[in-house]
Structures are given as C-alpha cells and as structure tokens.
Computed example of a mutant assay.
Amino acid sequence: MSAISNEMDEKFQELASTKTVRGVLILNNDGAPIKTSLEPKATESYANMLHEIVSLARKLFLENDPNNDLTFVRFRLKKHEIMVAPDKQYYLVVIHHPQE
C-alpha cells in the first residue's frame, strides 16, 4: 500500500469517526485500497465497483471535453449514499447513512 499524506490521514480519521459514516476508503488510481475502515470483503467489493464506475465516467467526460475532469460523484441508494472524490493520485470514498 502507498503512503498517504498526514493531511489525508487526518481527514480519513475525521470522516471515519463521524457517526453517520459507515466506511471510508482511500484507493489509488488503479482501484487498489490504500487505507480503509471497512472489512476486507466489503473493501474489495466497493473498491472494484467504484473504480470501474468512476474510471468509465471520467473517461467518457474527458473524451467529450478534455478540459472538464470529474471532481465528485454522489450515488444515492435506498440504504445509503456513496460519495467519491477522485483526485490525480487517489479516490476518497465515503459510505454514509444520511437518515441516521
């Protein structure tokens, strides 16, 4: 696993300790988990799914306009919402239960 900055680690800890947050992941651009608060099976599942979706969305938007990269994605599901902030090196993923 790659090293992350102190600032990113602090943000990870802050998000992971939030009452309504059920999980936080930091993935590299290849979708490999760098840091997670989830169990290994859930980490692998979310990492694979979100890497595939976000990579495809990013590719499609960049093909349409090379100067307009994806910066944030929010998926609202029945049970929870998933927020993804892709960056040049990492994806920050937060799984949140807003109704609690």
Rank of each mutant, 00 (worst) to 15 (best):
V94D: 00
D9L: 10
L62H: 13
F72E: 10
A42E: 12
V21R: 02
S2H: 07
N48Y: 10
E44W: 03
I95M: 07
F72S: 05
V73F: 08
T20Q: 13
V93G: 00
G31T: 08
E14Q: 12
S45E: 12
H80F: 00
M1H: 08
A57R: 11
E100S: 09
I34R: 01
K41G: 01
H96F: 11
E44G: 06
N68I: 06
E39L: 06
L25Y: 05
I26R: 00
V73M: 12
V24R: 06
E63L: 11
A42P: 01
Y91K: 05
M8V: 07
N6W: 04
A85F: 04
N48H: 13
A32F: 13
S17R: 13
I82N: 01
T43R: 00
E44C: 01
P86K: 05
N6T: 12
Q13F: 02
K35H: 04
E63V: 09
M1W: 07
E10D: 11
N28H: 11
G31P: 08
S45M: 11
T36A: 10
E63C: 08
E52L: 13
K88V: 14
M83S: 07
E14M: 09
V93I: 10
V84C: 05
P98Y: 06
P98D: 02
R22P: 02
R74F: 05
A42V: 09
L70T: 07
E39Y: 03
K41C: 02
L70D: 03
A42L: 13
N68K: 14
V73H: 05
L50A: 05
N48S: 14
D9G: 03
K88C: 05
E44S: 08
K59S: 14
A32T: 15
Y91E: 06
R74A: 04
N64E: 14
H96K: 15
I34D: 02
I34P: 00
V21C: 03
N64R: 14
L38V: 06
N29G: 09
I82Q: 05
A3E: 10
E81N: 11
F61K: 15
A47M: 05
A3N: 09
P40A: 04
N67W: 04
N48V: 09
V94Q: 08
Q89E: 12
N64Q: 15
N68A: 12
N64D: 14
D65M: 07
A47Y: 01
Y46I: 01
R58T: 15
K35C: 02
S2D: 08
N48R: 14
F75T: 06
I4G: 00
Q13G: 01
E10W: 04
N67C: 07
H97E: 14
Q89S: 11
I4L: 03
